[in-house]
Design a protein around this nucleic acid. Structure first.
Ligand SMILES: [Mn+2]
Ligand SMILES: [Mn+2]
Ligand SMILES: [Zn+2]
Ligand SMILES: [Zn+2]
Lengths: 132, 132
DNA sequence: AAACATTCTTGACACCGTCTAAATTAGTAT
DNA sequence: ATACTAATTTAGACGGTGTCAAGAATGTTT
């Protein structure tokens, strides 16, 4: 796993303790944390970090393409460290969001949408995860 | 087009002037209005209606299945009077949301998702609408 | 009219996300 | 090292969304 400082430097963002804490929280996450989740996590590594800095850093990471912002459930957007194209499954009971690999689903028929210039798309599935 | 009063009666909701105004605004809409859009519209028909009543009525209509709540853009959920299964295209420049008929897209490959019990799904496409 | 049930309005509240001004920090020049 | 400057962070205010509780209004029953 690449170092948080290296990641920030590679994107021309000065690595500060606050930003490092945010990066370590959000980029190592395998889930889809909200800004507040990241804030809580970053606080443990850097107890002085403020809410504004967390938001600023998250938005910066989105701008630089290290992170995707997704609006999939009401109440708050979530941040997705998985920047590869993929789909999502949302467990309606727990609220958990699962990544579905891109090649697991095939979407056909986009030829019919002549009026639209599609820059991206994804399938959003809802239901509940089978407990096995 | 069925009468707003008839719609409410059919769903065992007492038709009041406020609820009629909300229903007329949201169910005749061919777009995807936010709660605040509905509030503005309902105010014109019933200038005394309050924000709380608009929210209460919208939630009631969702419970009764006359309306779908969708979270597709950040900031506020939208309400969808089209309760048939369909997909959505979001114009990233204007924010407009367009319905894509269900049979215009085909999603295949759900066989691989054995761990998930899918109750619903939709494709969300983003881009910009071609001006022709 | 009086009592009751339903609905509506108002305003408070919690939360999300942005913004600004001031304070702190880091970097540079002398 | 000191002074100056630029970048960053912080704290709090702010506007917007959505919910809630208390009282007012409305409508129905006796
Ligand atoms: Mn979470
Ligand atoms: Mn709108
Ligand atoms: Zn994801
Ligand atoms: Zn729709």
């Amino acid at each position: 796993m690449e170092d948080a400082i290296s990641i920030l430097r590679r994107c021309d963002i000065q690595p500060t303790p606050q930003r490092i804490a945010v990066v370590e929280c959000v980029l190592t996450s395998k889930s889809h944390p909200s800004a507040d989740d990241v804030f809580s996590g970053a606080r443990e590594k850097c107890p002085t970090v403020s809410r504004a800095t967390v938001y600023n850093t998250l938005n910066l990471l989105v701008e630089k393409g290290l992170l995707r912002m997704q609006t999939m459930k009401e109440g708050a957007v979530v941040f997705d460290p998985n920047i590869e194209k993929h789909h999502h499954f949302i467990d309606e009971e727990t609220g958990a969001i699962y990544d579905i690999p891109w090649d697991q689903l095939e979407v056909k028929g986009k030829r019919g949408l002549n009026d639209f210039e599609i820059s991206e798309y994804q399938v959003i599935l809802r239901g509940r995860r089978k407990k096995k």
